[in-house]
Design a protein around this nucleic acid. Sequence first.
DNA 1: TTGTACGCGTTATCAG
DNA 2: CTGATAACGCGTACAA
Lengths: 338, 338
Amino acid sequence: MSKKITIYDLAKTLGVSAGTVSRSLNDHPSISMKTKERVISMANELGYKTNKFAVNLSKQKSNTIGVIVPKLNSIFMSTVLAGIEKIVNDAGYNLIISQSLESMEKEKLNAKTLYDSGVDALLVSLAYDTSDFDHFAHYIRNKIPLIFIDRVHNLPNCSTIIINNRLAGFEATEHLISLGCKNLLYVGGNIKRNVYLDRLEGFKDAIAKHQLDFDQSHFLETDLSPDDVDSVIHYIKSMKNAVDGLFVSSDNFAAHIIKALKRENYKIPQDIKIVGFNNDPISDLVTPTLTTVNYPGYEMGILAGQSVISQLNGSINLQPANSITLRHKLIKRESTFN
Amino acid sequence: MSKKITIYDLAKTLGVSAGTVSRSLNDHPSISMKTKERVISMANELGYKTNKFAVNLSKQKSNTIGVIVPKLNSIFMSTVLAGIEKIVNDAGYNLIISQSLESMEKEKLNAKTLYDSGVDALLVSLAYDTSDFDHFAHYIRNKIPLIFIDRVHNLPNCSTIIINNRLAGFEATEHLISLGCKNLLYVGGNIKRNVYLDRLEGFKDAIAKHQLDFDQSHFLETDLSPDDVDSVIHYIKSMKNAVDGLFVSSDNFAAHIIKALKRENYKIPQDIKIVGFNNDPISDLVTPTLTTVNYPGYEMGILAGQSVISQLNGSINLQPANSITLRHKLIKRESTFN
DNA sequence: TTGTACGCGTTATCAG
DNA sequence: CTGATAACGCGTACAA
């Protein structure tokens, strides 16, 4: 039992050649039913297991798909991953997951490691500060499918899975405006990342459309980390015109801000109305419940998974650059009641 | 550039043998500095990449570590994973992650797939309903390190990484009792799982110690899923003696219960005091903030990672069954103020 | 210090 | 339909 049994062992005990055994096991058409059955039953009997290492070597593929995410411990990302995992697993692939910890350096390292370890495809959501993309060149050059999710970058022949962040930002902002807010503040993340930049653009769009005035003071770039809450509160309190509408690019961060604002005796939504982003479970559990933009993480994962698989199977005509945009939705809750 | 270059190519261009190239690249002692340098610089020049598939085949190991978790999209689990990933990545291993989706069947499938794909070790947190453990037999028989995290089972030669759930449950319960609660309810998960059973035992311990009465009506087994909230509320309202202390085995579920109780006009903590479990970020963001037991997910991940690595390196004497218990801590917040 | 030759387990090609 | 043999790329005894 401890000895690994190979197709040669099977071949010997059955009195056939190794090739025949291999083909039988793989249900190759040019093998007689009788032989196939004989081989298969003997394989079961001896407890034969195909050796993936050998398969990988001869096929030069690993049946694994690499993933690089900024952080594993985020409910959004892990939801995306759950979706991806489900799909690719059903398709017989394994997921090798690594985290960049929001650092481009680590992301580069991960990309290299995954490349070296021979992943058949790579899914990426970019780190906070990634500003060059050479580390993906190998993949593109060698035609290894490369798909960006959520935090994306346009590279030739790479798919992207996103939502329309600009429109979502627009809608969120317009919602605030429609409730009478006049002095808005957008609290976002690093605008190197499409998601935060696009939402800012949407924010500006809405402001422009409704002819409110915009200057830089209406936009605060943060790390969206709990550590930044104090400075945000400070900023809010120091604004010339009292802020009456807040658009925060992350539910989690918004929840922290709500807590801090309440401590400062702000009434929400009376004094300040707040819209978050992501439809994180937390948004429905805080008090007041948080208006937010639904971000279909699981569906993004599913689609990303399907997209990789179809590219790997060559079953779909790989468009040079196809981009999938999912539907978002503004969810109105107590934090913006009138 | 598109052609893969191998040690044979290097050997040919350098006029040495493939063996020499291989040894140079691996810094084998019996190669002259000069040759090594020649080989290495040529390797860089030609863009040589070692082919992991071949390495794996000849070494019969993959440099990957498998992980099976119940769900990826849980903040606790993804935090554990973040810890694991950090450690094993630094040690040069990749993580293949799969989710059982709380189903033993899927867990079996995952275990088999990972085994077949040749992981060098396996980390597991058990599914909700796993009741037999044959699917881990391969690992044990072949001496592939197998480590259980959080939701564990005692198997020969397998490490476990846990906290003392019984003691934590005891402390949480005693805390409620010390505040004057007389009629307690423990809302837990499937008691097949050590974590929920142990906390229940701790709950009973505290009750016994303080001579409150216990019968089955003080324990409610649930799926800890938001869908169960209504039935929990219903149960609470239907109890003969009004519940004044609630111990819920999950912060997330507790948060949902709090929300529902508030809707039913219960005052927390005046009418009912509540203790959750996990120190999920949500516990500090709900109103009232939730007393809970800190569960060091990241540290568990770190330790799990270190444990695997040391077993793989053989650097530590693998005790037959070593179990690591981490420190927990009751965190008192508003939901149990007096 | 270096070269040779074979093993690792499978798949693929080409005969038969 | 089946067998023999050559890749696949690297590690490594064994020899030199």
